[in-house]
Design a protein around this nucleic acid. Sequence first.
RNA 1: GGCGAGUUGGCGGAGUGGUUACGCAGCGGAUUGCAAAUCCGUGUACAGGAGUUCGAUUCUCCUACUCGCCUCCA
Length: 481
Amino acid sequence: MTETNKTAIKLYNTKTRKKEAFEPIDAENVRMYVCGPTVYDRAHIGNARPVIVFDTLYRLLRHVYGEEHVTYVRNFTDVDDKINAKAAESGRTIGEITEETIAWYLEDMAAVGALEPTKMPRATNYIAQMIEMIEALIAKGHAYAAEGHALFRVRSYEKYGVLSGRDVDDMIAGARVEVAPYKEDPMDFVLWKPSSDDQPGWESPWGRGRPGWHIECSAMAKALLGDVFDIHGGGLDLQFPHHEDEIAQSCCANGTDEMAKVWMHNEMLQVEGKKMSKSLGNFFTVRDLLEQGVPGEVIRFVFLSTHYRKPMDWTEKKREEAEKTLTKWKALTSALYDGAARSVAKTPVPTVIIEALADDLNTALALAEMHKLAKDAKHSEEACIQLAVSMAFLEIEWSSPWQSNFGSSLEKILGDPAQLEPYERLLSDEREKAMTTKDFSKVDQIKSALLSSGLEVRMSKAGVELDVTPDFDPSKLEGLL
RNA sequence: GGCGAGUUGGCGGAGUGGUUACGCAGCGGAUUGCAAAUCCGUGUACAGGAGUUCGAUUCUCCUACUCGCCUCCA
């Protein structure tokens, strides 16, 4: 494959505040690092945003450079005071908590259609690399040990603040920095901190302790992707201080100019117009939604419908619209002829879709293009296949319709969906009679009874069709036959 | 206080220096015993002010408002 026929990807680089043409350092191995979760609890809905955003980018990169030529690393932070607190309050071990939470996380992210990254390192497996990096920083004068801590000397790195556009002196003026007696300067941040006997700890040149959060990502990224790699992603809230600190640590320890060529940040998520928070009562997890019966694909669709660099609002209305749209699309694509899977597999992803995604991940535009395809799909098999291909690319199931969604609950209630047949026949027969007598009163009566039980009633020349809706209550049908 | 992002039609949400976003809702029509579903068609917009320009929703500046980060919340 030559460079010339590769899709040109443009990405907004936080570092330069511009949309730039993406040029991988090595097209044979495109490398991306995304900050993963601290594993102490279920992922909330906001946690899903970076996962879905960078999953889309991962898919695009694989599409352009080949599946074997993209390395995507997303870490698990499995040593953290929140985890310790959770363990203490639940009486369980830290290991139990992190194992369980990691399993939950993978389950929930798979449910919203995210591929697993190539590598998912756990911080506790990289303690040696962290210590090594801290030692290098101390040796170079970028860090110092004090009272069982190791601290990064922020003033020693003149580019500190460049990523987030902050000035060290301004930040101190803001006075929101933790002042500690062992710090040379209030801005200095922790690389290593001492652990008490009941806290997880590792032996180190500075005594038994545990790493600071920022050093974890620096060490894991270096170990798995090298000193300089292509893309570093994460939520906007991580831009400062986390990413700023990562850059300072990595560049100083590795003696490089930069840590990643492109820095990408997704905007934050709100719920019904407000910041999600437990006190506002609008806090919920991905699992909560799934348990309420919101398909993972709907969650994914809602996220994709807003550009990643814009604040996104999760609302009930969007959820409903997404469900409606997907139901429609799935009805179209699943009605393709038998053997369509082969055509779909052979058909390339439509250029308009790839181009939209290649333009700084314009997922909303890609969905708009799919809406257009859906419109044409009503008359054109080719458009319908293209829609299916596009859906497949975005990890949306196209080959089966969505009534099965309700079907499963129907089966629970009725035992067998075929039990609707007698009602269909009843209505159909009465309707035929009425067609000749012109007296529709009985038909209307049956129809409204069916409707009020939560069934959908469709009458056409072809006959009568009944479908269940989520509100279906079979007990209301009693006595009708 | 510091830094940053944003403000597009009823709602959601792209985009562009002069030309259709797209979806939902609405409206009109077809179809229907009536509906639903479906199909066809269709209106409404670029926060306010100033500037640059032949021309700005799109560039610049100011104002207002919203939001985020500065606290190991993605």
